[in-house]
């Protein structure tokens, strides 16, 4: 700090304002980019959500209709269904990936033989394109040619039709999501585990604690802030989920896997009810903002304590 002041004084005020100007100019491209491609679209979203927009012969006609679009949401059984599906999907996926990722990280951390292989391979699913992930799982779950049915049939069992049944399709997309995103949880927890001071664990061992007690009394409490951050991250990710379901189930059968993003896409692109889709979008953005806001303030409160 002192150095900066000295150099500022010796080089005169001109250099200081030069730096100030440079600092603002350097931020400008970022702000302009986000203004055009994020702030403006959000503004469009707000505007559209208070309007009734119709498309006639490729021309858009809009008229202000107050809160009508928002009032439609509770009366739209498809939207209500999507919200329910999304809630159930998020809850299951967040819990399952957290448990699997934490368990995996702990296992790999105390492994001797497979440590380096597992550390590498367990990351792979997360880097595969969601579109390819759904292709991969289609090749496994497809009722006519999928791997599961080939195995079942070669064992003389009845083939499954999971993707065609409501519960089966829902469980399938949860499994796919867990396979795809557990690696992210794994990475964080593994990094967190490696950051734990070994002496603390040694002290615990010397005091006669067994491995289970070490995990419950020492390791998990230390990891708790990390786990909390990932829980929020995974919640956002699962509410944003789109690609995998879009291809694997198209939201079906009978809306059983119709996540909110899929439903919004349908109203925007197929139904072309821009006002209503925007209103629904805005609600989802607001809910996500609220979740992050609460998480952020909780974290601040914890830190200041």
């Amino acid at each position: 700090m002192k150095n900066a002041a000295v150099s500022g004084r010796t080089r005169g005020s001109f250099s200081l304002s030069g730096r100030r100007a440079t600092s603002v100019v350097a931020l400008l491209p970022f702000v302009v980019f986000l203004a055009i491609f994020a702030v403006y679209p959000l503004y469009e979203l707000v505007r559209l959500s208070f309007q009734e927009t119709e498309v006639l012969d490729g021309e858009f006609f809009s008229a202000f209709n107050g809160l009508d679009n928002f009032k439609k949401i509770p009366n739209d059984p498809l939207a209500v269904n999507s919200i329910k599906v999304t809630l159930l999907f998020s809850t299951l996926c967040v819990i399952l990936t957290l448990v699997a990722g934490t368990a995996g990280a702990m296992m790999v951390n105390s492994s001797r033989i497979f440590k380096s292989a597992a550390r590498n391979i367990f990351v792979w699913p997360a880097v595969v394109a969601p579109v390819v992930v759904s292709v991969m799982w289609l090749l496994i779950l497809d009722p006519t040619m999928g791997l599961v049915n080939k195995i079942l049939e070669s064992l003389g069992r009845e083939p499954q039709i999971w993707l065609n049944s409501k519960a089966g399709a829902f469980i399938s997309v949860v499994v796919v999501d867990v396979w795809h995103w557990t690696p992210v949880v794994f990475l964080f927890i593994y990094a967190g585990l490696n950051g734990i001071n070994q002496e603390i664990l040694e002290a615990g061992r010397v005091d006669g604690a067994n491995e289970g007690q070490l995990i419950r009394r020492i390791i998990l409490p230390i990891l708790l802030p990390t786990i909390a951050v990932i829980a929020v991250l995974r919640t956002i990710m699962s509410i944003k989920a789109f690609d995998e379901m879009y291809l694997l189930t198209k939201g079906g059968p009978e809306g059983a896997t119709s996540l909110i993003s899929l439903h919004i896409r349908e109203i925007f692109v197929d139904v072309l009810d821009f006002g209503y889709a925007s209103a629904l979008s805005l609600c989802i953005v607001a809910i996500l903002g609220l979740i992050v806001g609460i998480a952020y303030s909780l974290r601040r409160k914890n830190r200041s304590r």
């Binding site: 979203l45 559209l48 944003k240 896409r265 925007f268 805005l282 953005v285 996500l288």
Partner: peptide, 10 residues
């Protein structure tokens, strides 16, 4: 935190 689908029209 914004789902990309919501920014599609804009």
């Amino acid at each position: 935190i914004v789902p990309p689908i919501t920014l599609v029209p804009g």
